[in-house]
Amino acid sequence: MNSFTLTQATATDEAVRDLTSHDGAAYLGGGTNLVDLMKYNLERPTHLTSLGLLPLTDITSLPDGGLRLGALATNADTAWHPEVEKRYPLLSQTILAGATPQLRNVATNGGNLNQRTRCYYFYDLATPCNKREPGSGCSALTGPNRVCGVLGTSESCIATHPSDMCVALAALEAVVRVQGPDGERTIKFEDYHRLPGDHPEKDNTLKPGELVTAIDLPEEGYADHFTYLKLRDRSSYAFALVSVAVGLKMNGNTIEKARFALGGVAHKPWRDQEAEKMLEGQTASPDLFRQVAAKVFAEAKGYGEDSLHNSFKIELGKRAIVRALKQATEMSQVVNPNVFLNSNP
C-alpha cells in the first residue's frame, strides 16, 4: 500500500471539491473494496476523500412512489430497512446473498456499485492484465478463468462484475444519482456499468470526480413474484458463479411484466430486454423458460472446457434462469428475510 493523505468530508460539495483539488485522489466509502485493492497495490491513490461523514445515509420514500437509497447507507442497513424488506424483498435478499455480515455492515451502496470487477489476474501484479495495465494482454483468456464471464466479453477482457446487489438493481431498473464538478445528473442503471470492449480499464460510466449520492428505485418492487438465485462454490461468502435476479408481475399464470438480470457472467449485471419481452403476456411454463434461457445465452462464448475454465457457465446459466423463473412464478418457497439460503430446492 502506498502512502496517502486523507480528508473526511462532511458535505457533498465539499467532497467533490476535495477530490478534484487533489491529483490521484479517490473517494473512500466503506473501504472494503478500495482498501483491499490498495493493499494489493492495484490502486495507489495519493489522497483519499472519505465519505463516511456525508449526510447520505437515509433511505426515504419518493413522491412518485419509489424509494431513495442514500449512497452512504450501508448494505446491511439497506437490506434490513423495513421499506426495502416490504416493498423490495428482491433487493433485500440479493444484498444478504453477498459478502458477509461484517462486510455488509461497512460496505456502502455507492461503494458496492463502484467495486472493481473481479479476476485472479487483475489482483496479481505479476501477471499480464489489460484491465490493470492496458496493452499487457489478458491472462484469463486461456488460463484458469472459472470466475470470468461468458457474455459481452471482448478479447481484451473477460472479467465479471462481482456485485450481487447490482444484479437486483438492474432488474429493478434503478436510477443512479451522481454529483460531480459539473453538477448533478442521473444515470439509468443499465448504462451505469459498461462492457470491456477495448477499454477494460474502465468499469463504469462515472466521469472524473463524480460522486454517487443516491440510488432511486421505481415504485414497482415485484414483492409478490421475485427470486434471487445465487450459485457459487460454497454455501456462503463466495462470489457468484452465476446468479439470477427475477421480478415478475403475474396475473394468474400469465406473466404481465418480467424483469431479470444475471450476475457472475459478464463485466456488468446482464440484462436482456428482448428475453424479458419473450416472457411478457405469456403463460409461465418450463418450455417458455427454456426458450428464454436459450435466447439469453445464444451469443455466449466460453473460454475453456475443464472445471478451471468457464464454459460450463453457459449451461449452468441457462438452468439457473429456468429455475429462477420457476421459483419466481410459483413463490412456493418461504422467503426468510434474515437468511439467504443458497439454491434451495
Binding site: G143, P144, L308
Partner: peptide, 10 residues
C-alpha cells in the same frame, strides 16, 4: 488453480 503459462498458482 495453477496457470501453466505463468507457472503460478492463481
Amino acid at each position: 488453480y495453477l496457470n501453466n503459462e505463468l507457472g503460478r498458482f492463481m
